[in-house]
């Protein structure tokens, strides 16, 4: 545990002493809840359609594959045509693209970003590295199977997949969402213990609460 995360007494500028417990004060400890589809089927279908047509991606590149996402914003490929936009904050994003290899250090950040996103949320694994480690199969500090740590909805294979492949992948993701099959957030909440066990097995300096919001 890092020193700045330990419980301590702080003296304020007005001389009042108060106790600070970073892990409790900075995070919400409520475990994730399952949010099943609650509305009538026709409403849920409308929402699913809207979700599929308005995919907001968290602009967080975790590996070399992030370079393939940039051309999608530019005139050559222009993903905005398909209702795909980038949001800089996990709160507003619906889709986390794990772009390529994920080192253990980055996995920690990816987990925190994922947990701050709101239900429903989707994960797309980009490139071979997220499936079986790819060219990093024998690396000591990258994870091999993304699915063990976060609920993946879709993989886009290749090393690297071209932007066209990404666009095709997003179209497939849209079909999954429209069919109501992209329930990764609920899956994560249901199998929370299993995911946490897997995450803690590789992340040795675990200095955050089990659930980040």
């Amino acid at each position: 545990m890092k020193e700045e995360l330990l419980k301590r007494v702080v003296k304020g500028p007005d001389g009042v002493e108060f106790e600070v417990e970073p892990l409790r004060d900075y995070y919400c400890e409520a475990p994730p809840a399952v949010h099943p589809p609650v509305y009538a089927k026709i409403v849920e279908d409308l929402f699913n359609w809207a979700r599929s047509q308005s995919i907001w991606i968290l602009g967080f590149g975790t590996g070399c594959g992030a370079i393939e996402m940039r051309p999608l914003m530019t005139p050559r490929f222009d993903a905005y045509r398909y209702g795909i936009q980038w949001r800089p904050t996990p709160r507003q994003a619906n889709l986390l693209v794990i772009s390529g290899y994920l080192s253990v250090k980055t996995l920690k950040r990816a987990i925190r970003a994922y947990e701050q996103m709101q239900n429903p949320k989707y994960v797309v694994g980009l490139g071979s590295c997220t499936i079986n480690g790819g060219m990093y199969w024998d690396s000591y500090n990258t994870i091999k199977r993304l699915d063990d740590y976060l609920p993946v909805d879709l993989y886009i294979t290749g090393c690297m997949p071209r932007p066209e492949a990404l666009l095709a992948g997003f179209e497939d993701l849209k079909k999954l969402i429209r069919a109501g099959k992209a329930e990764g957030a609920n899956q994560y909440a249901e199998n929370f213990d299993w995911y946490k066990t897997n995450q803690k097995r590789v992340i040795h300096d675990w200095d955050m609460p089990d659930y980040n919001w």
Binding site: C28, F47, Q118
Partner: peptide, 10 residues
């Protein structure tokens, strides 16, 4: 529609 249809919020 999508944002009004999000299931969770804090």
């Amino acid at each position: 529609i999508k944002n009004y249809g999000q299931r969770s919020s804090i």
